[in-house]
Design a protein around this nucleic acid. Structure first.
Lengths: 351, 351
DNA sequence: GGGCGTTCTGCACGCGCGTGCAACCTAGTG
DNA sequence: CACTAGGTTGCACGCGCGTGCAGAACGCCC
């Protein structure tokens, strides 16, 4: 049990040096003779001294804290994103100030973040109000958006190649003979959903095919199932559905199999997005698109730290390539197409 | 773009009052006349002033920050636990300092947490070294363990009623005529796995049944599947498997159905733990045990805040009742047992 | 008019640490 | 021995804010 907080002055007294010497011992690249440093460290050890980061922050005008605004942690993609971002930041010596976005008053919580003088902010969220990002940016702090970008070139971002992912899906579906391809969108006002749809549409068009039908499933299971039912009740029925995320794709798969008795992929192909864990489960084997989350996280951190270090200024938009992962809910390509297939068929998600 | 950080002195000057008046305006329960407060708020608004929480922390010797050590965010249970804890803390005006536990050097990161002068720490993790908790406790900060407890009465904790959960499963399996009940354990050195096993064992014993076999699946999918294969290759085969979490239970279910062609629940009953989302998916319909996560989170926060406010001292261990959720992977009770069944068959997880 | 209580304000110090600057010490050189 | 350069150290101030204390302003009553 710690009686009283140990200050650098206590260490200095015990070591027989000045407080400055203690401070410098803990400041990389400061002038301290080896002997002094030894004495200080010994005394610190004895007193169980830890520099007070709060005081340091105040003095140095930098908290070594990064704010992360998390939302949608029920979604494994964002949970893992948070975990990965956090690990990377920790390794760089940063602390993480976490803000859980609740629908009502995110705006009320952001100032709270700022009041702790975070050095920068990461916003990993497709569904977060853009207002926040702009406001943060205006406060002068480095901000990086993950998995969303703003049309006005105001805030830096890193996102997956949603358009490319959609296009890859279109290419596969077209080549394997589908002509009535439906799109099950996520949230209408997210760039991710829009771009996946656009990629699909444009690549299909290149093959002389139009998107057969569209519905919105808000990225959720129930809404996705309902949308799938609507799509599958069309006459003639779609022969393929591209869903803007895995959650909706799995729901669609269950509707198709259990409710309608459809054979997948023979009568209906289904493709998801995110390459989440359940896609690999034997009952599903869902063809999906991998976003390369680790790379997205890595780049987000890189962007942010570069800005902090003044190595980079201005606004960047980085797009991370996506990868189509073919599994059992889509038809195999015919042998004659092996070459094209090689480009897109992966062994492991990311080598 | 903020030119320079706005200090309380700037506000004071503009408002024509002293710096103290500004400070008191932002301190609930301090003496300020309504007119002064008005002037201050107007000036603050004009300058876009936000009190510097770092400086406040230093001065008040309290950071209003709670440390949360997160691990296993891939597990939806812990992801949601983090989310819930975070929301509750935010509503109470606390900030969250997040630490992602990485296997190698958690011990190296904890001091980092402490150096930011967190007011308290929450450790939601079954697999986290107990050493850390004890060390934290020794630093004099309030600590609450979630979903794990230490045998020595040293650190406060809140956990689910693992023993009761295991017992409820035993009761169900015994009543529905099973005699060869296997236990698929999680990690051997976690209290959660041990207690679930003990509850099962003791309640089965009360029905004159011994646990038929045991295996360890480390709470993971692959290891769980392997363990399930081992259990199911016994002769005679178990007629029920209780798995220490849903992940392993789903894996076992797939092994049973897809690899061995077993009919569930006719030939084999399977029960999981956590009542996670996939248990509700139509393909699985897994009987499971709900831990009442929201209640666990609520109590964890309550314990911590009570300690912070000095309303509670000493060590508490709170156990939150668990609830058996019967679905399609276990047999229905016979009509004669309706009364007993009512006790345990839930409509919704928690009313 | 004087005394007193109430309400509010400002002063000044402290929270724990970083760091520019000057002073100090040592060794080396002429 | 005098002098200088280089290496170390300590002093003192600042980071932005909270708060005890003394005093000011005001109103009230005798």
């Amino acid at each position: 049990m710690q009686k009283r907080t140990v200050r650098s002055a206590d260490v200095a007294r015990l070591a027989g040096v000045s407080r400055s010497a203690v401070s410098r011992t803990y400041t990389p690249g400061a002038y301290v003779s080896p002997e002094t440093r030894e004495k200080v460290l010994a005394a610190a050890e004895m007193l169980n001294y830890r520099p007070n980061a709060i005081a340091r922050s105040l003095s140095k005008q930098s908290s070594q804290l990064i704010g992360i605004v998390a939302s949608d942690l029920d979604n494994p993609f964002y949970a893992q994103m948070l975990s990965t971002l956090g690990k990377l930041l920790q390794r760089q010596g940063y602390g993480i100030l976490l803000l859980i976005a609740e629908s009502p008053d995110i705006d009320g919580l952001i100032p709270n973040l700022l009041s702790y003088q975070v050095d920068g902010v990461i916003l990993p969220a497709a569904t977060l109000g853009s207002q926040i990002a702009i406001e943060l940016q205006r406060s002068g702090k480095p901000v990086v958006l993950v998995n969303r970008y703003l049309s006005h070139d105001v805030v830096s971002s890193v996102s997956g190649d949603n358009e490319g992912g959609g296009a890859a899906v279109a290419e596969l579906l077209a080549r394997t003979g589908h002509r009535r391809v439906a799109f099950l969108a996520g949230l209408a006002d997210t760039s991710s959903s829009r771009d996946r749809g656009r990629g699909l549409r444009e690549e299909l068009a290149r093959h002389g095919i139009a998107v057969y039908a569209e519905a919105e499933g808000r990225y959720e299971r129930e809404a996705g199932a309902a949308a799938a039912r609507r799509l599958l009740s069309l006459d003639p029925r779609p022969d393929a559905i591209f869903c803007a995320n895995d959650t909706m794709a799995l729901a669609a798969l269950e509707v198709a199999r259990a409710e309608l008795g459809l054979k997948v992929p023979e009568e209906l192909a289904i493709v998801g997005y995110d390459n989440s864990e359940p896609t690999r489960w034997p009952f599903y084997q869902l063809t999906s698109v991998d976003q390369n989350l680790p790379e997205m996280a890595r780049i987000a951190i890189e962007l942010l730290l570069d800005k902090l270090a003044g190595r980079r200024s201005g606004v960047d938009h980085v797009v991370v390539p996506a990868r189509l992962i073919e599994r059992a809910t889509t038809r195999r390509r015919s042998p004659g197409e092996t070459r094209a297939a090689t480009l897109l068929t992966p062994a492991s998600p990311h080598p």
